[in-house]
Nucleic acid binder design. Structure first.
Length: 138
DNA sequence: GCCAACGTTGGC
DNA sequence: GCCAACGTTGGC
């Protein structure tokens, strides 16, 4: 299977990258997603080995703060009809990528994250976008 | 705290 | 199925 790239949002007040870093084996279920489009992505499209940006939303400096790997594909939460995946922290960025910086890059204008009014908490990233974003952290 | 944008709910 | 009302998200 082709490897895919994603971005997951979380409010650091609820679940931060440091919470994930403190989890056993730095692994935790990515649960609590209550949106059908995001649910379908979790259930149908996210595979083991996929790479995921960890994004902090609704905070002082909204930013991509780390990189995770999917270690368990979509499975049902205890509360139907919601689904989750398991993620493992690969890297906490020493230099996070703020939303404000991402918005300045015209090559990233198509990112769902920066599209007006977007509220998706689980979104796809193209390989090209992934690598453009990684350059921003240098 | 404000508010725009979006998703969901529920009456009809 | 329509759509107004309401609740939530999330940047600023």
């Amino acid at each position: 299977m082709t490897q895919h790239y994603w971005l997951f949002k979380s409010e650091p007040n609820t679940f931060s990258i440091d919470d994930l870093a403190r989890s056993p084996n730095q692994t935790a279920p990515w649960d609590g997603v209550r949106n059908y489009q995001a649910r379908n992505t979790l259930r149908d499209n996210i595979q083991i080995g996929d790479e995921v940006f960890f994004y902090h939303s609704s905070c002082a400096v909204p930013a991509i703060v780390g990189i995770m790997e999917v270690v368990k594909a979509g499975y049902p939460e205890k509360t139907p009809p919601w689904f989750c995946v398991d993620v493992k922290l690969k890297e906490k960025l020493t230099k996070p990528i703020p939303l404000a910086l991402i918005k300045q890059n015209p090559q990233l204008a198509d990112l769902i994250l920066v599209r007006k009014g977007n509220r998706l908490s689980i979104m796809p990233i193209t390989a090209k976008q992934w690598h453009l974003l990684l350059k921003e952290t240098v």
